[in-house]
Nucleic acid binder design. Structure first.
Lengths: 166, 166
DNA sequence: TATTGTTATACTCTATAACTATA
DNA sequence: TATAGTTATAGAGTATAACAATA
């Protein structure tokens, strides 16, 4: 076996396990809320939210894909699904005929508005309810730092050196 | 629109977004590593890891399902898949013929061992690399607290009061 | 030729409901 | 009757590769 096995301190292990559990439960709860209230998958919600935030409520497929880690075909699939429900429209870009511009509709915004309160509430009651202000600030600081680190470093998806075993 | 809309402070929002991003990227990276190195889905890894931790390397289906939030049929599906690959065995319990005992095999342990170093490495390099000891301790403390909160409170999946809109 | 996006296709995962068997 | 699991089935999501159109 490799002699470079575990390299996490007990504290790191504890942090990792707890982090994993929290993110899993929170994600689960949020997904259920989105599905129950707005019949949206998490990805679909992310797409709508991004469009809702965009200045004119629209973005190119490629830009959307950049934000939500996603294969292009997967994005097409979701965009189609949202379009069929009338939550977005798709049209070729006037500037570059190759591009498709996805735009959120009034109906799309309505669904977003319908879903948002419960979403916030879930996050509030599950993630923050048991934390005091200082904890929240620390959490924000630490998570922001990690997130910056992740953006800076290419997510090589881990596994630089192959485990030559076998 | 509801007058009970957003109720997250700016700091909470920042913490939530960063947390979401980190957990998403980390999960993604870990899943890819598990798949590349061990051809395991995340759930399958969890199942194997649990069995590997169990005193005698075995557990009842029900006990496994308790740990990994899962429908029974979903668990059966994964257990079957792992059994076909020779990573676990399934046999009726001697004590209660209704129960199925799932046990990890030597091959299963081998896959676990093969996957583990890269898994740890991913967590190390993605989650902890940019944090100092104090940060890690704080993260462990905060996450443990939230996780305790989540366990204590029924994950009502959020949405106690319906958004009566529409 | 490079880029943008779609289509065809195939596979994995998950859940619900019906069913079997043991307690 | 209640519990443990499996099976049948169906649907959502994802990815890869081939393709069409535009730059």
């Amino acid at each position: 076996m490799n002699d470079r096995s575990p390299r996490l301190s007990p504290t790191e292990l504890a942090a990792y396990f707890a982090f994993t559990e929290v993110s899993s439960l929170l994600r689960h709860a949020v997904e259920k809320q989105l599905k129950d209230v707005g019949k949206l998958s998490y990805v679909q919600f992310q797409l709508l939210a991004r469009l809702g935030d965009a200045p004119d409520g629209s973005q190119r497929m490629t830009d959307l894909a950049d934000g939500v880690v996603y294969s292009r075909s997967g994005l097409t699939y979701q965009a189609q699904s949202l379009e069929e429900r009338g939550l977005v429209t798709r049209a070729p870009s006037p500037e570059d005929e190759r591009s498709t511009i996805v735009a959120i509709t009034a109906e799309g915004r309505a669904v977003l508005a319908k879903v948002f309160p419960g979403h916030i509430e879930a996050v509030q009651s599950l993630l923050f309810a048991s934390l005091d202000d200082a904890d929240v600030e620390v959490l924000a600081r630490v998570m922001t730092q990690v997130s910056g680190h992740l953006r800076a470093n290419p997510p090589r998806s881990a596994g630089p050196r192959k485990v030559k075993a076998d």
